[in-house]
C-alpha cells in the first residue's frame, strides 16, 4: 500500500503477475495434527506463506488476573520468525504482531464455546515461518484447524482470506507485490454456517462498490478454504483408522 512501482500488477487480460485471475486464490495446503507435544496443531501453506499453529488447553489461566469467572479466554500469540521475511525481522513482539494476536484471539473467542470452561485459558501459538502477504489470514486459518484438532468445543471452523485492490482491480488473496504496491487490503474471516464476519480490517482506500465486491469475493473464497480445513481434519482421522483396521 506504500510504494510505487512500474510493475504491471494486472495485465489487460486480467492476469496477475503470478498467473492468477482476479478471483483466484493461491494454492492452499492444510495439514492437521503435525505436532505431537501440543494438544492440537496445524500447518498451513497459502502460496509462499508457511504457518504453524499450536493449541494448548483449556488449562488454568495464568496470569491469574486475566481469569474470567464466567468463561474461558482465548490467548493468542502471533509471532514472525526472524527468517520469515527477506530482511531479517527483529525478533520479539512488536506493535503489528500484538495487534494481530489481539484480533485473532477475538475472532476465535466468537466461535469457541468459552462458557464451558470458566476461569480457564485456551492458548494459541501462531508461528510464521515464511511470509508473503496475508499471514494473519493464514494464521487464523491454521489456528482454527488446530483448535478443532485439540478437541475444543466450538461452533464452527473459521476460514480467513484477504481481498484487496491493486492497479485499480479488485483482487482476491493479494500476494506480496500486490499488497505493497496496491491500493487496499481487506482481510476477512467468517463463520461459514451463518456467514457472520468475525474479522474484518481494511488498509487503504476503496469505493463502496469495490468494497462490496471485495467482501463478496472473500466470503466465497472463505467457503472454499473451509472445505479444505474440514478435509484436512477428516484426513487426519480416516488414515489411521484404515491402517488400524487392516
Amino acid at each position: 500500500m506504500s510504494g510505487h512501482t512500474d510493475m504491471v500488477l494486472v495485465d489487460e487480460n486480467g492476469m496477475r503477475i503470478d498467473g492468477r485471475t482476479e478471483e483466484q486464490h493461491r494454492p492452499i495446503k492444510i495439514e492437521a495434527g503435525v505436532l505431537s507435544n501440543a494438544d492440537g496443531s496445524a500447518y498451513v501453506e497459502i502460496g509462499k506463506n508457511k504457518v504453524l499453529a499450536a493449541v494448548y488447553g483449556p488449562r488454568e489461566c495464568h496470569p491469574r488476573h486475566l481469569q474470567n469467572p464466567t468463561k474461558a479466554i482465548v490467548q493468542c500469540k502471533y509471532n514472525m520468525q526472524a527468517f520469515s521475511v527477506s530482511d531479517r525481522k527483529r525478533p520479539g513482539p512488536d506493535r503489528r504482531s500484538i495487534e494481530i494476536s489481539k484480533i485473532i484471539s477475538e475472532a476465535l473467542e466468537r466461535v469457541v464455546l468459552t462458557e464451558l470452561y470458566p476461569r480457564a485459558s485456551i492458548d494459541v501459538y501462531i508461528e510464521i515461518l515464511q511470509a508473503n502477504a496475508g499471514t494473519r489470514c493464514a494464521g487464523l486459518t491454521a489456528a482454527s484447524v488446530a483448535l478443532a484438532d485439540a478437541g475444543i468445543p466450538m461452533r464452527d471452523i473459521v476460514p480467513a482470506i484477504a481481498a484487496g485492490k491493486a492497479d485499480g482491480h479488485v483482487l482476491l488473496d493479494l500476494n506480496k507485490e500486490e499488497d505493497n504496491y496496491g491500493q487496499a487490503d481487506v482481510p476477512i474471516a467468517i463463520m461459514p454456517s451463518t456467514d457472520e464476519i468475525v474479522l474484518l480490517q481494511m488498509d487503504g482506500n476503496m469505493t463502496r462498490e469495490e468494497f462490496d465486491h471485495a467482501i463478496e469475493l472473500a466470503v466465497n473464497a472463505c467457503h472454499e478454504v473451509h472445505d479444505l480445513q474440514v478435509d484436512a481434519l477428516k484426513r487426519r482421522y480416516s488414515k489411521p483408522a484404515q491402517e488400524g483396521s487392516e
Binding site: 494438544d39 478443532a148 478437541g151 466450538m154 481434519l233
Partner: peptide
C-alpha cells in the same frame, strides 16, 4: 457438531463422541 468426533445417534438425540479433548 461442536467438537471433532464420531457422529452418534441414540434414540431421538444426535450427538458427537469426541476423539480428543481434555
Amino acid at each position: 457438531a461442536s467438537v471433532m468426533g464420531v457422529r452418534n445417534v441414540f434414540q431421538n438425540t444426535v450427538g458427537v463422541i469426541p476423539l480428543k479433548g481434555c
